[in-house]
Amino acid sequence: MCAAAALALQLWPAHTGSPGPLPPRSKAAPHPVPVTDADSAPVRLRVPALGLTAGVLPLALDAAGSLDVPGFADAAKAGWYALGPRPGRPGPAVFVGHRDAPGNTYLHGRRVGPARLRDGAFARIGRLHPGDRVDVERGDGSRVAFRVTRVDTYPTRRFPTARVYGPTRDAELRLITCGGVVGPDGHWDANVVVSAVAVAGSGGR
């Protein structure tokens, strides 16, 4: 099952941390953070090649310095790191989401049977290819289109923080989820990172 992303390296202004690989998840539900200039904040993520449409939760860091991800009740949503760049502006806008999440079977409002795994919003992002499109809808209804440039899987212990989160001249996008294989501890041992760049004239600012 997927996890929250931990603070690893200061790459943005000093008051903001940049997240690192996705370590074992916390069971605590995250709290969406208020955003200024809601018109430019992302509200929806679309990936046509996967048939994916996901709402967006603006999230920050938890008390342990880890980047929150949507809680399991919101596993169909993507979490946006609201302390980093906004989609369409210079730098990598970071979105994280669950690959899978526990689900329960209910009967007449009561849980019956053991929990089962279900797909999260980012269950299939590892299937994307360079050239595929990712659209981000902002609060004012405008959209920024991104073109996938690479899809990588990195072992958690060798996560290239600077490459993934480092400043960029252009508007870029990072979609991150768990990957690799599930180890004896029940956690994935790697991260899938989809990188994309804004399409010229698509609404970037």
Score class of each variant (00 low, 15 high):
residue 53 T to E: 13
residue 80 W to E: 03
residue 36 T to C: 03
residue 89 R to G: 06
residue 70 P to V: 01
residue 22 L to I: 14
residue 120 G to T: 02
residue 102 P to K: 11
residue 140 D to C: 07
residue 46 R to S: 05
residue 68 D to F: 01
residue 54 A to Q: 02
residue 109 G to C: 08
residue 63 A to Q: 14
residue 130 P to S: 03
residue 43 V to Q: 05
residue 72 F to A: 06
residue 69 V to D: 00
residue 47 V to D: 00
residue 83 L to K: 04
residue 69 V to A: 13
residue 22 L to H: 08
residue 73 A to I: 07
residue 108 H to T: 13
residue 90 P to S: 06
residue 32 P to G: 07
residue 145 A to M: 06
residue 35 V to P: 00
residue 47 V to Y: 05
residue 26 S to T: 15
residue 58 P to V: 11
residue 91 G to F: 04
residue 88 G to S: 02
residue 76 A to N: 09
residue 143 R to L: 04
residue 90 P to L: 10
residue 80 W to P: 00
residue 45 L to V: 10
residue 100 D to F: 12
residue 17 G to T: 07
residue 91 G to E: 09
residue 94 V to H: 04
residue 111 R to M: 09
residue 130 P to Y: 05
residue 68 D to R: 02
residue 106 Y to V: 15
residue 51 G to I: 08
residue 62 D to F: 03
residue 43 V to I: 15
residue 95 F to G: 06
residue 122 F to H: 08
residue 44 R to G: 03
residue 23 P to S: 09
residue 94 V to Q: 04
residue 142 S to G: 05
residue 122 F to D: 03
residue 78 A to Y: 01
residue 39 D to N: 12
residue 90 P to M: 10
residue 93 A to P: 02
residue 131 G to E: 08
residue 141 G to F: 15
residue 39 D to R: 12
residue 104 N to M: 12
residue 138 R to H: 12
residue 21 P to D: 04
residue 45 L to H: 03
residue 94 V to P: 01
residue 143 R to Y: 00
residue 122 F to K: 04
residue 113 G to C: 10
residue 42 P to Y: 03
residue 106 Y to S: 08
residue 61 L to G: 00
residue 54 A to Y: 10
residue 25 R to C: 03
residue 107 L to E: 15
residue 103 G to P: 04
residue 46 R to T: 14
residue 110 R to C: 01
residue 20 G to Q: 05
residue 75 A to T: 00
residue 134 V to C: 06
residue 36 T to D: 13
residue 101 A to W: 07
residue 70 P to Y: 06
residue 24 P to D: 01
residue 73 A to W: 14
residue 120 G to Y: 06
residue 142 S to I: 01
residue 75 A to C: 14
residue 84 G to P: 12
residue 120 G to M: 08
residue 143 R to W: 09
residue 114 P to C: 09
residue 113 G to R: 06
residue 101 A to S: 15
residue 41 A to S: 10
residue 32 P to M: 11
residue 138 R to T: 07
residue 70 P to L: 01
residue 118 R to H: 12
residue 96 V to G: 11
residue 120 G to A: 13
residue 95 F to S: 08
